[in-house]
Write a protein that binds this DNA or RNA. Structure first.
Lengths: 251, 251
DNA sequence: ATATCCAGCCTGTCTATACAATTAAATCAG
DNA sequence: CTGATTTAATTGTATAGACAGGCTGGATAT
């Protein structure tokens, strides 16, 4: 937990795009850059308010605002009497994180495999077009993959993909890599949304998941963006008896 | 878009639990209560900084901080030259966080009310102690609150609370404010975890939620930390037919 | 009547100062 | 050496004052 040398402070504002920003905002930007560039390491102590005041000749309240807001945003941690430190990590809610079912199963030390049930190129119906934010009849891929954990079904993954953004989706070997892995490689996800519901499965879904019709399922609908475009929309169905969604937020 | 009359301001701090909070925090709390109670309507203009300064005799910077933070949290919208207004609804990013069912219902433009079914002081069982990270027999409060949206049950909220961290939990009027609102005021949440499952409700839960036994429910178990301490653990049960969990991540 | 300008209100920011609370380290008493 | 006490550093909060910049409505000039 070594300190950031005060000498660094003098060039805090150096390689900043000279937008007409308020001082506190420039300070925030300068600090997040130090952190994301790795120059200021996790748990490292950052300059105290007094040091920044002295080095940059700004008011303490201005520095305080920058540091306070960065703390609220999870970049820093502050302890009265001790100082300000680079936070552990910027943890999003893992609950709402996009994950890879294969990795998740592996993380539990279990065996994963999957079966490709459907893979086809098609033209978007009106509903699908709405979901993906494209025009009706725009080219899409549809896939249905059944995932297993220790040979027991754990997830039905129904997915539609924008062909424009992932043109080779239908040429992948989904026994080797999950759809998620391929999509992340061609169009890194920058944004997403989820809708989580408890539903009763229909007959086909029951059969695929090897469960009774009375067993509730967790349904997650998920859309992911790369920039302004929607890459893919998925409907993930998990048997309630074998699946929990765990998440952590804050810090 | 009528104004909030300045006379309201004089009793802004009135029915606040007198926790030892900083002024800006009390102000934030008072304002969110005005909003969630419906006394201050969407798009209504709220008092200007100058008016609050005059009415409450606090500094403008203090008022500014409260309003600025509430704006960042999505409660208010500010326009230079015009004033400050109650925001349309909570932004998605906020819905992500631990939320307040009352606000959520209000955000949909529906009526919320709740019934307090259980409220008792007790000693933690071994399981409860594990959950809260305290010793067995440590003092806790248990509460069960049934929340309604337009007079239809929407959530059973079972909660245990660490008495050390929220000693006045059992003195609150939960018809006025949700447990969440009080807990946030006395021990601002810094971290949390969720566990989401699809389950079948038992007979009592069915009756409380006014649903059939075959209807799946979304169960959310949630623990929230303030610093290193676990403040509260809740089990939230939603009827699947009336509830979706929406989340948004990235950018 | 119409266009222009301006005064007044409001938020946005910055500064300087003050005191409280917390922590760790240094100092002191035994 | 040990334990208690003081001190210094640091963050947390509150205040008063200042000026900039955006918006509106009313006064003014045409």
């Amino acid at each position: 937990m070594s300190d950031v040398t005060t000498s660094n402070l003098l060039n805090l504002f150096d390689d900043l795009p000279d937008a007409p920003l308020p001082i506190y905002a420039k300070l925030k930007q300068a600090i997040t850059m130090k952190i994301s560039s790795g120059e200021w390491q996790t748990n490292q102590r950052v300059p105290s308010e007094a040091e920044v005041v002295k080095a940059l000749g700004v008011s303490r309240m201005t520095v305080n605002r920058a540091l306070r807001e960065l703390t609220a945003e999870g970049y820093l941690v502050r302890h009265q009497g001790l100082g300000t430190f680079v936070a552990e990590k910027k943890a999003h809610s893992a609950l709402f994180e996009v994950h890879n079912i294969a990795e998740e199963v592996a993380a539990r030390g279990h065996k994963h495999h999957s079966e490709l049930l459907v893979l086809e190129a098609a033209k978007a119906t009106m509903e699908e077009a709405m979901t993906l934010g494209v025009r009706t009849n725009h080219g899409i891929f549809r896939s249905v993959v059944l995932h297993f954990e220790n040979d027991l079904p754990i997830q039905i993954e129904e997915r539609i993909v924008n062909t424009t953004l992932a043109p080779d989706y239908d040429k992948q070997d989904f026994a080797k890599h999950t759809p998620y892995e391929y999509l992340m490689s061609v169009a890194p996800m920058t944004e997403g949304e989820h809708l989580v519901e408890a539903i009763l499965p229909n007959a086909i879904e029951c059969e695929r998941l090897q469960i009774q019709g009375s067993e509730p399922c967790l349904q997650i609908k998920r859309r992911t963006w790369a920039g302004d475009d929607i890459v893919t929309a998925a409907r993930l169905l998990h048997p309630g008896s074998r699946f929990q969604l765990f998440g952590h937020f804050g810090r």
